[in-house]
Write a protein that binds this DNA or RNA. Structure first.
Lengths: 337, 337
DNA sequence: CGGCACATCGTAAACGTTTACAGAAGATGA
DNA sequence: TCATCTTCTGTAAACGTTTACGATGTGCCG
């Protein structure tokens, strides 16, 4: 852990000035003899450029932050898996923030952009408050938001079409003959929660099904909360024959409760999750899920940010053509001979 | 994205020197009147301290890197989930590296420590080559290795007891009456691969079972590779009645293949995975798995690193008292009434 | 009123780079 | 050989902080 060599050390050893050292290291035109001496000295000393000093001078850190609500949610992980290689390929490091869905933490992250330890930020906020919007307008570095943001907010934006997703799921359940389709949602003051709530209502109406508010249960986007919500729902209404869950974690919680209650899935109650995570694919009973293209959105966000880092002054862009797919997982028993 | 205010800006506005500004911002003793003026100016300007400049001067970045082999492997995710809050609580940011299990990338990460963009590194290398060891000795920042490392390597080390894990699993399968227990392993030149291979052999011998090398199949630590390996295994030997899989991803691949081959799990073939990931818990058919304490190891690593960052000169430590647990998941059908 | 202790402040250097600028050295032509 | 042009190099400033040090002012005591 000894003090590492600096360009000054190299300059002394090579008998040249620090400017020459810097020029050689940056490949600027230099006499061959000087290049040789500097390279030799650098090799012998095991020199590595100091990123902090470079950043101070160049005003570029080559770091990008990704702020996610919940490290435990595979949907964010899917984004991360796409974001990471895109950034890496462009020479950026990834700073990971987990905000635990706490708005104050998200504001903190936005505020900390002023510290300039990153060149930009990709954020997927659950709630978008006025304070968020205010901070976004004043942000000291480019921000890409994954999730909806009001028209005119000066940031690049990647949107999921969760309305279509919900409609696909409801149509599917309806086509299977289900008529008492419940919605197990997250908090309504979250962006996805609000979108899914409205879409659910619209989808039912479009199918000519009544909207029964008894069939709507609010919980939170975690497995345990999903379980609790479904337990409450079942205690209230007993004739539910399908559950549209606002994400896969909720759906897994639902499966836990249904199993414990002795209801067969999907014979008695069909369950559709959302986000199409690994967990849904591996779960038992098999869980159909609507993909909102988490991976694709992550990739798009990373690309938008990189583009913005190169052309700082272009107009904010909106990326919303993300494919929405319903993965219908036929119960495994039926598949097997 | 305008140029932000600096302490110089504040100093001018408040009519004091930059030294005074710095002192106020750092809470050093200053006259009340000066404090007031500086604070007022800072507030009006929306000043935020520049992290890069601070780091340059203080030689501390308040960043820590975590290098994992595979963002897609939930075992590493479990570590990450514990590491993140520990670092955050201590005021450190988390820089995430994914090395895709490529040794060269891991070496790159170690080398890049010389750039001093982080204060320390937590790394979980799959392979530990001579080059790794050499780089570790020369590392320019404290490193904590999750996984085994030779005696005397000057780094803090957190070990999983995969020998015990394998023994638990084999004993369990033996107690269930299984006698043709196969091992589906990852590459033998990886640290976990080597450990599990030896442990498998020892566990069999301890039980008086013959070691049959036909029952050992080498693949890689991914789902698709696990599936391929199991397919090969089944093609070679048909009387296998249990699979000990070197991690959960392999085990999931095994389930895919067994299902396709019409073998019932666990009636015909019992499967035990390793790492006890979310996927194992959610999977179908139910997957028993040996927990090697990924989460606990992550936490321990983060704490070791923080401790080291405070007392830079203490002896390297070894943390190996991580609890190993076999999670026996009784087939769900039997549980239900 | 001189001297001293003490609190407070400003100047300047330092952290390790990059880079504008001017000066030195070498090449070229007359 | 000298002037001129080109190529290369060194000096110094800058990025935005922190901090050692010395200067200044205040109050107190003798």
């Amino acid at each position: 852990m000894a003090e590492g060599p600096t360009i000054t050390t190299i300059a002394e050893r090579a008998g040249v000035s620090i400017a020459s050292v810097s020029r050689v290291l940056n490949g600027l035109p230099t006499r061959q003899e000087t290049v040789r001496k500097v390279m030799a000295a650098a090799d012998e000393l095991g020199y590595v450029r100091n990123a902090v000093a470079r950043s101070l001078k160049s005003r570029r850190t080559h770091q990008v932050a990704f702020a996610m609500a919940d490290v435990g949610n595979p949907a964010y992980l899917a984004m991360l898996r796409e974001i990471q290689p895109v950034l890496k390929a462009a020479g950026y490091r990834l700073v990971l923030h987990s905000t635990d869905a706490v708005a104050a933490d998200e504001i903190d992250v936005l505020h900390s952009l002023g510290e300039r330890y990153v060149d930009g930020l990709i954020m997927s906020p659950l709630r978008v408050t006025d304070e968020h919007l205010q901070m976004l307008s004043a942000a000291r570095a480019p921000v890409v938001i994954i999730g909806s943001v009001p028209e005119g907010t000066p940031v690049d934006n990647v949107r999921a079409d969760s309305r279509t997703g919900v409609r696909l799921a409801i149509d599917h359940l309806h086509a299977l003959g289900r008529r008492r389709i419940a919605l197990v949602n997250g908090p309504l003051d979250t962006v996805p929660g609000a979108a899914r709530s409205g879409a659910y209502r619209d989808a039912l109406l479009a199918l000519g099904l009544p909207y029964d508010e008894n069939l709507v249960q609010i919980g939170d986007f975690y497995r345990a909360e999903g379980a609790r919500a479904v337990a409450e729902l079942l205690a209230r209404v007993s004739d539910v024959d399908a559950l549209m869950c606002a994400n896969d974690l909720i759906a897994l919680g639902a499966l836990d409760v249904l199993r414990a209650a002795g209801r067969r899935v999907p014979e008695d109650v069909a369950v559709v999750g959302m986000d199409d995570t690994d967990l849904a694919a591996a779960s038992w009973p098999s869980l159909s899920s609507v993909s909102l293209g988490s991976a694709e959105r992550g990739k798009a966000a990373a690309e938008l940010l990189l583009d913005r880092l190169q052309h700082g002054d272009r107009e904010p862009r909106l990326h919303e053509r993300v494919r929405v797919i319903l993965w219908y997982r036929v119960p495994k028993e039926e598949v097997q001979p």
